[in-house]
Amino acid sequence: MAGNRNYHDQVIVDNQIKLRELQKQLPKFCAEFFRGVEPTTSSRTRIAYCYDLIVFFNYIKSSNPEMTNVPVVDYPIELLDKITATDIEEYLEYLRYYVTEDGKEHTNGERGIMRKLACLRTLYRYFYKKESIKTNPASIVDMPKIHEKEIVRLDADEVSVLLDQVELGDKLTKSQQKFHDKTKTRDMAILTLLLGTGMRVSECVGIDINDIDFKNSGIKIRRKGGNETVIYFGEEVENALLDYLEERKLIVPQDGHENALFLSLQKRRIGVRAVENLVKKYSSLVTNLKKITPHKLRSTYGTALYKETGDIYLVADILGHKDVNTTKKHYAAIEDERRRKARNAVKLRKD
């Protein structure tokens, strides 16, 4: 990690480098678009735009005979005016299943198609607003209808069994058990923290030791949009963190990772993928447990908090949802349960 840059600032730098590399696969005029949207988007969003636009312009190359022999980087901005709403609809249909030059098959569901259309809309809106193009066909193509999935969450018994497996590890393979003694205190702290605060994995791995304030039971984290906030933890989380910090004192981290709270076996700051893998590993040991991801641990916390407080705005604030409607959508099933319970609350006549 360069200089004294913290985890989150380093991620932004790494993403900026990646963005520049990806842009080499796009028409030159896209560079202006990425500069224009930088103030209103995160580096992760711009990388997602890059990937989606690479798919789009490669589709144009393969489907438009006029552009087949022209390198994508040399596509002129005038090309956008030649594309019709029907062309975009055909592109969205193509996204459901296609094979790239390397022979890999790709599929997109409703959400993937929606994201790629949203990217095109942003591109067209930017250049249309700048009067660099005369048409905006993307704006008149309908977004696909999204069918909401059931929110998967753990009940109290499942949470207990999951944490028992982290502690015991008796169902792990022999090769996994070799590492279990070295990592179980750390893994217990990570899972207890995720289940006990509802924070995102990216927020969890970015925590530095001095971000924790045991006096006030708070942790300073950086939200997805870049804002810093303090979230508070209970006694179980505190105990798990204190246990891990005793072990953490004995570890000498690699250069640049001295401040990181959670370390990998390589003594570097643990990454998002590693946390996803450890959640997958332990949840696979629990019989009949649903397919669990870190995000489902977040949903588990949000569900429990809403059941306890009944305050959707508090849940939205603690989870870091910018729009309370996102929270309402996630916990609509619980609201329905509360309404059912209320059916006998009002008595019209005394017995």
Score class of each variant (00 low, 15 high):
residue 145 K to D: 11
residue 146 I to C: 09
residue 147 H to L: 12
residue 147 H to V: 13
residue 148 E to N: 09
residue 150 E to T: 13
residue 151 I to A: 09
residue 151 I to N: 04
residue 153 R to Q: 04
residue 153 R to P: 02
residue 154 L to E: 01
residue 154 L to T: 02
residue 155 D to S: 10
residue 156 A to C: 00
residue 156 A to E: 15
residue 156 A to S: 12
residue 157 D to A: 11
residue 158 E to Y: 02
residue 160 S to M: 05
residue 161 V to M: 12
residue 162 L to P: 00
residue 163 L to G: 05
residue 163 L to Q: 06
residue 164 D to A: 06
residue 164 D to C: 02
residue 165 Q to S: 10
residue 166 V to T: 06
residue 166 V to M: 03
residue 166 V to E: 04
residue 166 V to S: 02
residue 169 G to P: 04
residue 170 D to S: 10
residue 171 K to C: 08
residue 171 K to V: 05
residue 171 K to R: 15
residue 174 K to A: 14
residue 174 K to D: 15
residue 174 K to C: 02
residue 175 S to L: 12
residue 175 S to V: 14
residue 176 Q to T: 01
residue 176 Q to C: 08
residue 177 Q to C: 00
residue 177 Q to W: 09
residue 179 F to D: 13
residue 180 H to G: 11
residue 180 H to M: 03
residue 181 D to R: 12
residue 181 D to L: 12
residue 182 K to S: 12
residue 184 K to Q: 02
residue 185 T to H: 04
residue 186 R to V: 05
residue 187 D to P: 04
residue 189 A to D: 02
residue 189 A to G: 01
residue 190 I to V: 12
residue 191 L to P: 00
residue 191 L to G: 07
residue 191 L to V: 08
residue 194 L to W: 05
residue 196 G to K: 03
residue 198 G to N: 01
residue 198 G to F: 01
residue 201 V to W: 02
residue 201 V to D: 07
residue 201 V to T: 13
residue 202 S to C: 11
residue 202 S to Q: 09
residue 202 S to E: 07
residue 203 E to R: 03
residue 205 V to C: 11
residue 206 G to T: 03
residue 206 G to M: 08
residue 207 I to S: 09
residue 208 D to T: 12
residue 208 D to A: 12
residue 208 D to Y: 11
residue 209 I to D: 06
residue 209 I to F: 07
residue 210 N to H: 15
residue 210 N to M: 11
residue 211 D to A: 15
residue 212 I to G: 08
residue 212 I to Y: 08
residue 212 I to A: 03
residue 212 I to V: 15
residue 212 I to N: 06
residue 213 D to C: 06
residue 213 D to E: 07
residue 215 K to R: 11
residue 215 K to W: 04
residue 215 K to L: 08
residue 216 N to A: 10
residue 216 N to D: 14
residue 216 N to T: 15
residue 217 S to K: 14
residue 217 S to W: 04
residue 219 I to T: 07
residue 219 I to D: 06
residue 219 I to C: 02
residue 220 K to V: 12
residue 221 I to S: 02
residue 222 R to Q: 14
residue 223 R to E: 14
residue 224 K to H: 09
residue 225 G to W: 01
residue 227 N to E: 15
residue 227 N to F: 13
residue 228 E to M: 07
residue 228 E to H: 13
residue 230 V to K: 12
residue 231 I to T: 06
residue 231 I to H: 07
residue 233 F to L: 06
residue 233 F to Q: 03
residue 235 E to G: 00
residue 236 E to W: 10
residue 237 V to T: 14
residue 238 E to H: 10
residue 239 N to P: 00
residue 240 A to H: 09
residue 241 L to E: 05
residue 241 L to C: 03
residue 241 L to W: 09
residue 242 L to N: 07
residue 243 D to L: 10
residue 244 Y to E: 10
residue 244 Y to G: 04
residue 245 L to F: 09
residue 246 E to C: 07
residue 246 E to V: 13
residue 247 E to Q: 11
residue 247 E to R: 07
residue 247 E to G: 02
residue 247 E to I: 03
residue 248 R to V: 08
residue 250 L to S: 11
residue 251 I to C: 05
